[in-house]
């Protein structure tokens, strides 16, 4: 059983816009001052593209990632993800949208500590009423197999290494077969070998399964794994690096 439906040859590979931000700003009040981490940002990301966001701390990377993931809402502007304007959705609608369309990978994995790897990966599937228990278990097993942790299904997070925890988190992010994966410094807490494994997985999801991936990173080596790298500074895009080769870059 596979988790994803592989793209068909008729897909407009790399051409179709999957994420479109127009004049997106985000402001919030901190004490008496208003902070604006993102200001009038425009951005297009193609379907199946693997995009890296880089920039100094406080540049608005994570804020943009949270907006794209539907965890937060822009103050102004439009943010479209696959024909859905997230800016128009209310909190409850955003939650339902996330459950179906977006997988989130955190820097610190954020697995539920009392649950086993299997149960952590199963969590998002509990939201789908149409799935039987058998189907759910089959999907979880396939996702864990895909990240190479089928033999660690019964282990709790405390019994796993950091790299393994992150791979469980990736399995949890992909198990619902979302079109979008967002990753907030997914290799930030990992050694180089584990980081390579995680980046290989992300590239595989982008190239083989046409998942659109937006990854925030401070690590230039990790950014090299992406097809395109954007730099953010003070809430603005300052530079775009387009990687033209379709072959994954060696990490």
């Amino acid at each position: 059983m596979t988790v994803f439906n592989p793209p068909t040859s008729s897909d407009p590979h790399g051409k179709e816009v999957f994420i479109r931000c127009r004049n997106v700003s985000k402001s919030y009040r901190k004490g008496k001052t208003i902070v604006t981490p993102l200001e009038a940002l425009d951005l297009d990301v193609g379907r199946g593209e693997f995009l890296a966001l880089m920039g100094p701390s406080g540049s608005g990377k994570t804020t943009l990632l949270n907006l794209i993931a539907g965890i937060d809402s822009p103050t102004t502007g439009e943010l479209w993800v696959d024909k859905q304007n997230l800016a128009s959705l209310k909190r409850g609608q955003l939650t339902a949208w996330r459950a179906k369309h977006c997988g989130y990978i955190f820097q610190l994995y954020h697995l539920v500590p009392i649950l086993t790897a299997f149960e952590n990966v199963e969590l998002p599937l509990l939201l789908d009423r149409s799935l039987s228990r058998k189907e759910r278990h089959s999907k979880v097993a396939a996702a864990l197999d895909l990240v190479g942790l089928a033999n660690r299904a019964d282990h709790r997070p405390t019994e796993l290494s950091g790299g393994q925890e992150q791979r469980v988190a990736i399995a949890r992010a992909i198990v619902t077969n979302p079109g979008l994966l967002v990753a907030d410094e997914p290799t930030g807490d990992l050694d180089r070998k584990s980081a390579t494994q995680v980046l290989d997985l992300l590239r595989e999801f982008s190239s083989e399964y046409r998942k659109t991936i937006v990854m925030v990173t401070h690590d230039a080596v990790a950014a090299n794994a992406a097809q395109r790298t954007l730099h953010l500074e003070k809430g603005q895009l300052v530079e775009q690096v387009q990687i033209t080769t379709s072959e994954p870059t060696e990490v």
Partner: peptide, 14 residues
Amino acid sequence: IKEGAILQTLGFPR
């Protein structure tokens, strides 16, 4: 609190 936030990120309603 973080666990609740993780569940909500995964799509669990409040």
